Computed example of a mutant assay.
Amino acid sequence: MDAELYTQLDTASVPEARPACSLGGTVYARLRDALLNGEFGARESLAELRLAARFGVSRTPVREALARLHTDGLIEREDGGFFATVPNLAQLKDFYELRVTLELRGVARAIEDSSVRHDPAVLTAELERWYAMRERPPAPDPRFVVQDERFHAELSRASGNPALTEALVTVSERIRRVRMYDFLTRDRVQTTITEHIEIMELVRDGRLDEGYRALHAHVGDSMAVVMERAQRAMTQMALHAGRI
């Protein structure tokens, strides 16, 4: 089950970054996925020759892909080379605050406007996935973050505002390299599964005020707690650099 579970986000349910309509675009998409999934260590150089060999292309499409990823903010240039961008604590705080705002807005808009209804089909389908995980909890793995992101993307998508969902997915991707190391213990994975089911059942049942409070607690009621968790995750990332 774990091998099947730990895959990319379902691209049918979240916005894609950009279409890969050229060789450079294809390399960009594949390298972007590799970066977001932590396949490169924090200080691992993204050398053109090595990447060209990895993707079976010349250096030109690799150079094009690196330029686009640099513009996206996913890689940074240092000492004449490119490296994966790792947000510092100040940036993480900003991203987390934005994430909390986007997450809660999806539920808040339904509380404020009775005509806004969460799509029951989306909620039911996602709940079924988490019920299955509750029955057979996956092993702790950094890649569990992809499942976590999918839950939050689907909860947002069910609220009916595609712009909110797109913004949430973008923010989640920017902090994935750090957040993925928050899922290295069995207790953490099981707690996440339990809380996800509770939140989505409350929203599904129309208990929106309770769902809002549960979601707020889940994504970080206290910024101090969030930042402590982020610091721990960054330490784990440094310890596991290059081992994924």
Results as ranks from 00 to 15, higher is better:
residue 85 T to P: 01
residue 78 E to K: 13
residue 184 L to K: 01
residue 142 P to Q: 04
residue 30 R to V: 03
residue 113 D to M: 06
residue 160 G to P: 05
residue 108 A to Q: 14
residue 34 A to P: 02
residue 179 R to L: 09
residue 240 H to R: 14
residue 210 E to R: 11
residue 73 G to W: 03
residue 142 P to E: 06
residue 191 T to P: 00
residue 27 V to C: 04
residue 30 R to S: 12
residue 139 A to Q: 15
residue 239 L to Y: 05
residue 107 V to I: 15
residue 219 V to M: 00
residue 82 F to T: 10
residue 74 L to P: 00
residue 126 E to C: 12
residue 176 R to G: 07
residue 151 F to N: 04
residue 222 S to H: 14
residue 210 E to D: 14
residue 55 F to C: 09
residue 240 H to T: 05
residue 125 A to W: 07
residue 211 G to Y: 07
residue 24 G to I: 12
residue 239 L to H: 08
residue 43 R to A: 15
residue 216 H to F: 11
residue 214 A to P: 08
residue 127 L to F: 04
residue 186 R to L: 09
residue 150 R to T: 04
residue 211 G to T: 06
residue 76 E to K: 13
residue 20 A to P: 13
residue 71 T to Y: 04
residue 91 Q to K: 09
residue 72 D to K: 06
residue 159 S to C: 04
residue 50 R to V: 15
residue 123 L to I: 12
residue 10 D to H: 08
residue 205 D to L: 07
residue 170 T to R: 11
residue 243 R to A: 06
residue 171 V to D: 02
residue 228 E to N: 14
residue 48 E to R: 15
residue 98 L to W: 02
residue 217 A to S: 12
residue 231 Q to I: 02
residue 197 I to Q: 05
residue 234 M to A: 13
residue 137 P to S: 09
residue 152 H to D: 00
residue 214 A to C: 07
residue 168 L to W: 08
residue 240 H to E: 11
residue 144 F to V: 08
residue 165 T to C: 11
residue 153 A to Y: 09
residue 121 A to Y: 10
residue 74 L to H: 11
residue 216 H to R: 09
residue 137 P to E: 02
residue 220 G to Y: 00
residue 48 E to G: 05
residue 2 D to E: 08
residue 239 L to F: 05
residue 204 R to M: 07
residue 113 D to T: 07
residue 243 R to P: 00
residue 132 A to I: 00
residue 170 T to Y: 10
residue 65 A to L: 13
residue 187 D to R: 13
residue 130 W to F: 11
residue 216 H to T: 04
residue 101 T to N: 05
residue 30 R to W: 03
residue 110 A to D: 03
residue 93 K to T: 15
residue 155 L to V: 04
residue 220 G to M: 00
residue 88 N to W: 08
residue 66 L to F: 03
residue 132 A to N: 08
residue 216 H to N: 10
residue 169 V to D: 12
residue 233 A to F: 05
residue 156 S to L: 07
residue 204 R to K: 09
residue 134 R to F: 06
residue 59 R to G: 01
residue 118 H to L: 10
residue 94 D to T: 11
residue 193 I to M: 06
residue 212 Y to A: 14
residue 205 D to W: 00
residue 102 L to N: 03
residue 17 A to D: 13
residue 218 H to V: 04
residue 72 D to P: 08
residue 119 D to Q: 05
residue 236 Q to L: 04
residue 96 Y to L: 11
residue 14 V to F: 06
residue 126 E to Y: 00
residue 54 R to Y: 03
residue 237 M to I: 02
residue 140 P to W: 06
residue 16 E to V: 15
residue 200 M to G: 00
residue 197 I to E: 03
residue 170 T to A: 13
residue 154 E to I: 07
residue 149 E to V: 06
residue 22 S to Q: 07
residue 135 E to K: 12
residue 112 E to G: 11
residue 227 M to P: 05
residue 65 A to G: 07
residue 96 Y to F: 14
residue 12 A to S: 10
residue 127 L to D: 05
residue 210 E to G: 00
residue 23 L to P: 03
residue 143 R to N: 14
residue 132 A to F: 01
residue 163 A to R: 13
